[in-house]
């Protein structure tokens, strides 16, 4: 149970909204739940629902709508390369492909050791620093801009070795 593990953090999240608007806390609580397991489990949906006075289905519905939530386990690190129009004009699609080739996977797949998933995403608001990706790590999301395949592989090596936020 999250509430037993993180009572203060949950209290703080709830306090961010007017007392009669607990439902607003559902998104930050889902981040908390996802941080815990790498994805939002059914049990977490139920717990979050109970915390904010919703049905589990209403919480699950949000997990489905917003792309930053996951309802299934996947790689520990998600390298999400922006391949949207402005970045693609700067070679981001080729970058993503090269990176994947070097990792021996295809776009959207996870490396065999389960460590890294590489995905293409829509614009990350970093179009002047392409190629760039966001790294979804257990502790949050971090930008890595002006990347080369070499710098990305270096980062992955580091993540595999050291773990942490990268």
């Amino acid at each position: 149970m999250l509430i037993e593990k993180y009572p203060q953090e949950i209290e703080r999240i709830l306090a961010n909204y007017p007392p009669d608007q607990r439902r607003s806390a559902v998104m930050p609580l889902l981040y908390l739940a996802q941080r815990e397991e790498g994805y939002v489990t059914r049990a977490a949906m139920e717990e979050v629902a109970a915390l904010v006075g919703l049905e589990a289905t209403q919480v699950g519905s949000l997990v489905g709508f917003y792309t930053l939530y996951r309802d299934e386990p996947s790689g520990t690190y998600h390298i999400q390369v922006c391949t949207d129009l402005p970045c693609a004009l700067q070679g981001a699609e080729a970058f993503a492909e090269d990176l994947c080739r070097n990792l021996g996977i295809r776009l959207g797949e996870t490396t065999p050791d389960g460590a890294v998933t590489v995905e293409a995403v829509m614009c990350l608001a970093g179009c002047d620093r392409a190629p760039l990706f966001q790294l979804q790590a257990p502790d949050g999301i971090h930008y890595h801009e002006n990347q080369t395949v070499e710098s990305a592989l270096e980062l992955i090596k580091h993540l595999r070795r050291e773990g942490g936020r990268g």
Binding site: L54, E55, T57, Q58, S61, V63, G64, F65
Partner: peptide
Amino acid sequence: DDAVIGFFER
């Protein structure tokens, strides 16, 4: 008041 079905994805 039984919000037990909902939309998933978008």
